[in-house]
Design a protein around this nucleic acid. Structure first.
Lengths: 127, 127
DNA sequence: CATATAGTTAGCTCCATGGCTAACCAATTA
DNA sequence: TAATTGGTTAGCCATGGAGCTAACTATATG
């Protein structure tokens, strides 16, 4: 019970749907009612509401009802959280690239050394 | 036939699964064979291979078989593409925040003006 | 009060996803 | 050549996600 999806799971799953990405994009430009949000989409309201719920469950969107109209707004923390994930991966990736570059440089030196065995007697395994 | 998922759909869907995120994180640190990748997971190989396929279909990962071992590596373009999406949203969001701030400033001025109605006769019903 | 508006709830399909087992290549290694 | 290893294919099952309609609630509005 209570499947305890990780927050990132929910955020990425929410963003995997084009309708929901469109909603997020729309909300980036400012808050809106459910009706306003739903208007551009050729979809029954209950179906559309499900998307809203998914977005709320993921923490990307929050909403509040006053009278009979529910107003939705972006809660940017979740978006930033997901963006962070990418930046972390990129950091690791780039660190690796640096190491790889260093490795290639080392290879090049060793190749060069191998190509002229005349002078370089042993080059002292300069690891 | 050929459901024509958008690239972003596939990337986010791929990243919505913790197993697949773990694979991506692992591959950020360098390429690996299917077996090496699968090892930490308590999962039958065929199930695991499905995850690899999803990652390949999304463009996040590419692989190549030589002999009987398939080596997988990250293809960072897709990752960067998804990261870009966040940055675009954030740009719009921040632009809006700026506008909102300007709006609040304007409100403040008007409030201040309203508080001293001595001079401001009608302020010209500025919508 | 009557009606229209804005969401909501309930409940149904259909298909994609994530997992499994069993059986099957195809390279290595003994 | 026989056995092992590393992946792959095929096919099954349970769950969940995305869509629908119909019927309902609650707030405005006439």
């Amino acid at each position: 019970m209570a499947n305890q999806l990780s927050r990132l799971d929910q955020i990425f799953a929410a963003l995997a749907d084009p309708t929901r990405r469109a909603i997020v994009m729309r909300l980036c430009a400012g808050e809106a009612s459910v009706g306003e949000l739903a208007d551009p989409f050729d979809m029954a309201l209950p179906s559309f509401m499900k998307h809203i719920h998914v977005l709320e469950a993921s923490g990307l969107v929050e909403s509040e009802k006053s009278g009979r109209v529910r107003t939705c707004r972006l809660s940017p923390d979740a978006l930033v959280g997901a963006e962070d994930w990418f930046q972390q991966q990129r950091a690791i990736w780039e660190a690796r690239l640096d190491r790889f570059e260093a490795y290639v440089m080392k290879l090049k030196k060793e190749r060069a050394a191998a190509k002229r065995p005349s002078r370089t007697t042993k080059k002292k395994g300069s690891e």
